[in-house]
């Protein structure tokens, strides 16, 4: 929203979302095709923008090695939830029909640099990457399969947090996923968590922060509470870099900020150090 306000004054011809990508960090206007060509990275400020789950999988998995698992696991509407705009079921069914995905994380077995791994990637475009029961179930199953097959887990998060349409059961997925990655780590297997833009709320406060390595990309937004909530609490404006990847690294919660082009080789190198 902030970038939109900024754009109203200087631009003579209001750039439309259809043609232009507006960098949410520096406000630069970048033609959409150029943005895509540059792998959703801002040419001005090096902000690493959002990728779809399938796009990121293609960049991380060895060619042809990704085999999706748990595709049958989808959302559940335990609460029969309705809000002002209608039912949760109608809303999410439309998202499923449009995206072709059934949950906010895509999970599979894959090879990275020839190493067999469990690879999971969240998609912010699917209900804001929110953590539903189906998401939690896929992640827990992935941890269990990784243990059974002696695979490292590489999990890329992108999420606004818990999915409130699934109420308390969404909250419980934080416990479920954290317990599952805890078991994986106890079993002596590495868990590499890649916190991509944005990773906030209940996802940052569960499995995403629990990596043996927590890595991220330049200028990703990572945090627990929302900026506005915090500003209302402390009655102060927060600096622009608050909750950025760089801020998290400075405060000791991120092992490394890795450029997108180096992400796969970096993960593979770390797995080599771990004896894989």
């Amino acid at each position: 929203m902030a970038w939109f306000k900024k754009s109203e004054t200087p631009a003579k011809i209001p750039p439309t979302k259809a043609l232009w990508q507006v960098c949410p960090r520096c406000g630069s206007y970048i033609p959409k095709d150029e943005w895509k060509k540059n792998n959703a990275i801002c040419l001005t400020c090096n902000y690493h923008g959002r990728l779809g789950a399938r796009q990121r999988i293609a960049q991380l998995a060895d060619d042809g090695s990704f085999a999706e698992v748990f595709r049958e696991v989808s959302y559940s509407d335990h609460l029969d939830f309705h809000d002002a705009s209608g039912s949760y079921k109608t809303k999410i069914d439309a998202v499923i029909a449009k995206s072709g995905e059934k949950e906010s994380v895509v999970m599979g077995t894959a090879e990275m640099g020839g190493i067999p791994v469990m690879l999971g990637v969240m998609d912010f475009a699917f209900m804001g990457g929110s953590l539903g029961t189906g998401t939690g179930e896929r992640i827990a199953r992935a941890c269990e399969q990784a243990i059974a097959e002696n695979r490292p887990l590489v999990l890329c998060s992108a999420s606004g947090g818990a999915r409130m349409h699934e109420g308390i059961l969404s909250l419980m997925q934080m416990a479920k996923t954290s317990a599952a990655v805890g078991r994986l780590k106890e079993a002596g297997l590495p868990y590499i968590s890649v916190l991509t833009d944005p990773t906030t709320g209940g996802v940052s406060a569960s499995f995403a922060m629990l990596g043996d390595l927590n890595i991220t990309e330049p200028k990703a937004l990572i945090g627990f509470a929302g900026r506005r909530v915090i500003e209302n609490t402390i009655h102060q404006k927060l600096p622009p870099d608050f909750q950025s990847a760089e801020y998290l690294k400075t405060h000791g919660f991120i092992d490394k900020i890795v450029e997108r082009k180096n992400l796969k080789p970096f993960i593979v190198k770390m797995l080599h150090y771990f004896g894989f």
């Binding site: 934080m174 416990a175 954290s178 317990a179 990655v181 805890g182 940052s204 406060a205 569960s206 499995f207 995403a208 922060m209 629990l210 990572i222 945090g223 627990f224 509470a225 929302g226 909530v229 915090i230 609490t233 402390i234 102060q236 927060l238 608050f242 909750q243 405060h251 000791g252 919660f253």
Partner: peptide
């Protein structure tokens, strides 16, 4: 959990996540 800047700086998300595990 306290939604403050100092809490974020000291890793509110990490502390909760760690506690769950």
């Amino acid at each position: 959990a306290y939604p403050g800047d100092t809490a974020e700086a000291r890793g509110q998300a990490e502390a909760i996540a760690k506690s769950l595990e």
